[in-house]
């Protein structure tokens, strides 16, 4: 079943000063069509400025496309109201790159992780606390960490808190917008392996990255964006090669495994 889809989506932004003078328009996405099946894990690759994060914001319903539409379980987002909109907000969660700026530094971890539960579910406070403890353990933290402030944790731990918050309302899909890029490489691999293990719960992922090395650890399929267009879609297999220009440039830029000579 198609969970989330972009249908011929375009997005333009207006350039120029705060007063909107000299109004030329910049096209960030054009004619992007992409679909994600339930439980699937898709990598969205592309160089900086190719439109990856804009597409993520559209898929999350944080902004609307200038043309085309985003659908959730075959319903266009624009038409969702009331409980349907609430169900969409609950089903599609996100983890951003900069975890420290994605949490309120004055809130304790328990409150941070419970936030989607307060707004998007009917759980009572005791049920919320139980769910918080459960997801903290799921991401390799301990239930006692609920009493900590983000400042008392390392960057990797705060990123786990953000993942726990995304998992809390039992979403159908989590969008990872460069969600591991700020971590050191060993930590990146640990977090990706953790996410891959969560796929047994049936969670789908959209993994936005520019680091091709990380893709096979989490994803079945890869789509390459270049200048706002999808230029390639491929299954991720052992030793897969990308064939589009942008894809080949990313593949050629992969750092060597070992020193030369």
């Amino acid at each position: 079943m198609t969970l989330l889809a972009a249908e011929k989506v375009g997005r333009t932004y207006r350039n120029g000063g705060l007063l909107g003078r000299g109004g030329d328009y910049k096209t960030v996405l054009s004619e992007v069509s992409l679909s994600l099946a339930a439980g699937e894990s898709l990598a969205l690759l592309g160089p900086s400025g190719s439109g990856k994060s804009t597409l993520a914001r559209l898929l999350l319903g944080l902004e609307s496309p200038s043309s085309g539409r985003i659908t959730f379980r075959n319903q266009p987002l624009q038409g969702l109201r009331g409980e349907d909109w609430q169900a969409f907000r609950r089903a599609v969660q996100v983890v951003f790159q900069d975890s420290l700026s994605a949490v309120n530094p004055r809130h304790r971890v328990g409150r941070i992780v419970a936030e989607p539960l307060r707004h998007l579910t009917k759980l009572n406070p005791a049920q919320q606390a139980a769910r918080v403890a459960e997801v903290l353990e799921l991401v390799g933290l301990s239930p006692e960490d609920a009493d900590k402030l983000p400042g008392q944790m390392s960057g990797g731990q705060v990123q786990r808190v953000c993942i726990a918050r995304a998992l809390a309302p039992e979403p159908a899909v989590i969008i990872l917008d460069e969600a591991v890029s700020n971590l050191d490489l060993v930590m990146q691999i640990q977090v990706l392996d953790l996410l891959a293990s969560l796929r047994r719960l049936g969670t789908a992922f959209v993994f936005i990255t520019h680091d091709l090395r990380l893709v096979p650890r989490l994803c079945d399929r890869v789509a390459v964006l270049e200048e706002g267009r999808i230029v390639e879609e491929q299954a991720v297999t052992r030793g897969f090669r990308l064939s589009s220009d942008a894809g080949r440039r990313l593949q050629e830029a992969v750092l060597p495994a070992r020193p030369r000579g």
Binding site: D184, P256, A257, P259
Partner: peptide, 11 residues
């Protein structure tokens, strides 16, 4: 760096 790929490339 924290990336051994960068080390392999340059160091």
């Amino acid at each position: 760096t924290h990336d051994m790929g960068v080390v392999a490339r340059l160091a």
